[in-house]
Design a protein around this nucleic acid. Structure first.
Lengths: 162, 162
DNA sequence: TTGGTTGCAAATCTTTTGCAGCTTT
DNA sequence: AAAGCTGCAAAAGATTTGCAACCAA
C-alpha cells in the first residue's frame, strides 16, 4: 500500500526499504499486535535481507513518529500495532486462555487525566490500560476454570499470527 | 513485622525464611515498587545467602496469593508492590523525567469492566492502568521540555531506591 | 519421611550495541 | 559527499531451569 510510504514520509524519518517493509506489515493488519520478531519475519517476505536489529532500531522511530504504538501487555516481549490517527483510542483485552489480544474502542480516561493533573500537579502525557481475562471462546471451552494470572496456556493458537 | 508472617501463612504457601524475608521487605515499604533485583538486595540483609533465583521463584507465588502485585510500568523489568487487601485499588503515575512511580488512589474502572463484559462477552479478571508524564519536581526543573515517550533520563535519582 | 525448596551455574530470550560497508538526501 | 542506515555477530540484561543438597510440614 502507498499509504504506508506516505505515512512514513509524512513522519519525517528517512525512508528506507527496510522501514517501509516494516510499516507495510503494520498497515496491512491494523487489527493485529505484532512482536518485534513477528514483524521481522513478516517484513522479511518483502525485504529478505532485513536484519532483526534493524527492526529493533526502527520501532522506536515509528513509535515517536506516531506510526506505531508499543504495547506492554504483560508478556515478556513488547507488541506493536499500526498507529491510527490521534483520537482513535481503544483499550486492549488480553485473553489468559489463548493469549490473543482483542480491542475495545473507547477512551474515557480524559476526565481522569484531568483530575490527576488538578489534584497532584503531575502532567500526564500518555496512559496505558489493558484488561486481562477470558475471551468468549475460552470461556466456552471452560479454560477459565482457575483464575488469577499465570503463564499463558501451552497450546495457545498462535497468538494472533494467522 | 509479624504481619508479614501471618500474611504468608494465611496465603497457604509454605513458609520459608527466604520467602518471609522477601515479604517483609515488601510489607515494610507498602508505598514502594521494587524490581526483583532490588527485592533480592534488600531481603539479603535479613537472609544473606538468599539467591536471586529464589526471589524469582517466590514472586509468582506471592502474586497468586495476593501478597504482592506485579507492575508492568513500561520499563524492561517488572516491579512489585505489597498487595493490600482487595478494594484498595490505586493507579500508577510514572515520571518520564526521574523514573519515580507515584500512586493515585481511586478505581473507577469497575463500571467500564462491566460494560466490556456485557458488550463483548469477555470475562474481565483484572486490569492494569498507568499514566506516564512528568511529576511536579521534574516540571519545575524543566525536565518536561521534549514530550513523547522515550528512554528515561540518564541521571535519574535512583528510582525509588534510597 | 518426603515432597517442596534452595543456591549455583548454565541456559534462554528479548533487546542493544560495535563496526565496517552501503544508501538516502 | 556527509550523515544516517544496515547486517552481522557479540553483548547485555532480565528471567528461567537443571540439579544435587536441604528443610518445612
Amino acid at each position: 500500500m502507498q499509504a504506508a510510504r506516505r505515512r512514513l514520509e509524512a513522519s519525517g524519518v528517512r525512508v528506507t526499504p527496510q522501514r517501509l517493509a516494516v510499516v507495510e506489515v503494520l498497515a496491512a493488519h491494523p487489527d493485529r499486535h505484532f512482536s518485534a520478531l513477528e514483524l521481522y519475519e513478516n517484513a522479511r517476505r518483502a525485504h529478505p535481507d532485513l536484519g532483526l536489529a534493524t527492526v529493533y532500531r526502527t520501532l522506536p522511530l515509528l513509535e515517536q513518529a506516531g506510526v506505531a504504538n508499543r504495547l506492554n501487555v504483560g508478556e515478556e516481549e513488547d507488541r506493536f500495532e499500526f498507529g491510527l490517527e490521534k483520537g482513535h483510542y481503544h483499550h486492549h483485552l488480553i485473553c489468559l486462555g489463548c493469549g490473543r489480544i482483542f480491542e475495545f474502542k473507547e477512551d474515557l480516561l480524559e476526565p481522569l487525566e484531568r483530575r490527576i493533573e488538578a489534584e497532584t500537579g503531575f502532567r500526564v502525557v500518555d496512559h496505558s490500560l489493558h484488561f486481562t481475562g477470558y475471551c468468549p471462546e475460552c470461556r466456552a471451552a471452560g479454560r477459565d476454570r482457575e483464575d488469577r494470572r499465570g503463564p499463558l496456556q501451552e497450546g495457545a493458537p498462535g497468538r494472533q499470527e494467522g
